[in-house]
Design a binder for these strands. Structure first.
Lengths: 223, 223
DNA sequence: GATTAATTTAGGTATAAACTAAAATATTGT
DNA sequence: ACAATATTTTAGTTTATACCTAAATTAATC
């Protein structure tokens, strides 16, 4: 039996593997707000599950088995479909969708997920720009650049905002930094200084500046 | 903390109180597929909860406190809104909605429930004809008669089908016995014999006959 | 090679929700 | 009224999940 906590770990592992080569016990512990020893325990449980969901070697971090990856993709599909559904059809703001989706994603059936996917036109990305695995559990992929690495003078389109923090979404939303919006990079101060850019919000472009840490949450496509 | 099991008990108690004067340990045990001793335990827990959710005296069954009733109404509201939502907007058949709603009703927020209620036009009854508590948790009420008590020759409108069994819904659905449909009672055989009636399905009325036990699941309004 | 950091082991705690068996209490029939 | 039967409660276990702490081990770094 797959428990709620197992789902939670698989979801977190998938997300961390997107940004980290290797997912360590302590990293997982930190993101899940749990002690490292607890993670070791659960990770071993998932590796010894029938069928095994993780590959795990002491002190080497974890990776998915085929089965584990499928499960993680399924939960992520459900989660992100729910987020988009809440945002587009139930009029939730994009900083509120995560919590509600988090409570729902492990209880809805595949049928339910497929039905709301149908209503939404089988979307590939949710309201944060996070990719949604297809019905066949294939994750869409694209090449995006973080605003921490973008060059001065570039024109680009915001494609994704990666964060766990609702306040970050709220902040960026108010500045007009949402997927689909066009921005022009004006200047970057050295030593991890602020980034200034032109945001095409409404009819008039607005100039804003972003601190280095948040700018890492914004992924864009260069045009 | 209100747990899932507590929700489950409160929901069951509310439903049973609709049909039974007094809800006994053994009745609850039977409907929940649990041993009577386990029910006693949980019922005591609910009665000693802060605030108390049930009134409970040994050997006398249970009744709700104000708080407990509110909680039960809230879950029932969520459950029935979900059922109607699944049926009307996601195209689930009326025999499939219960299971999905049952898994979702304890995780959705009040906000979510209110939003889907809005989409549905703040309905008073779900697809089985079960009443849906309002936003203020007031349960709509109406006077209905079971087909076990209906007189021969009467014209009536089906208003509600009460059952826990998906097969009953499937069976009655195929016969055209769904809320809103007009029927005319033709004959009732004595000794709990079959009931024959005319069902206005489509343009031509169809004659069907129902056994005594199922006929008790069908509630109608006389016209 | 010693110090520090990360990870794992072992054993324990907490909580929730069941269960069984025996005792206590009600209900029913004669 | 009282015995027989049925229901309900008590008390003590059981199972399961998911955490924790403290100590031991292993890996990484200077």
């Amino acid at each position: 039996m797959i428990t709620e906590a197992m789902d939670k770990y698989l979801k977190a592992i998938y997300r961390l593997l997107e940004e980290h080569e290797r997912v360590s016990t302590s990293l997982l512990a930190e993101t899940l707000s749990v002690k490292p020893a607890s993670v070791t325990n659960m990770v071993q449980k998932l590796a010894h599950y029938d069928p095994p969901l993780l590959e795990y070697e002491s002190h080497r971090g974890v990776s998915f088995t085929e089965e584990g990856k499928k499960l993680a993709l399924r939960i992520l599909r459900h989660h992100r479909l729910l987020e988009l559904y809440l945002h587009d059809l139930l009029d939730y703001s994009w900083d509120k969708v995560h919590d509600e989706a988090d409570r729902m994603d492990h209880v809805i059936s595949i049928e339910f997920a497929d039905k709301i996917a149908g209503l939404l036109g089988d979307p590939q990305y949710d309201c944060h720009g996070d990719p949604i695995p297809s019905r066949e559990l294939v994750m869409p992929s694209r090449d995006l650049t973080s605003l921490q690495e973008i060059g001065t003078g570039k024109d680009c389109i915001v494609r994704r905002v990666r964060s766990q923090d609702p306040d970050v979404f709220k902040y960026l939303g108010e500045k007009g930094i949402v997927p689909g919006v066009e921005v022009k990079i004006l200047n970057r101060e050295p030593f991890e200084g602020p980034l200034t850019m032109l945001v095409h919000k409404g009819d008039h472009p607005i100039e804003i500046s972003l601190g280095y840490p948040v700018s890492g949450s914004v992924l864009v496509e260069e045009i």
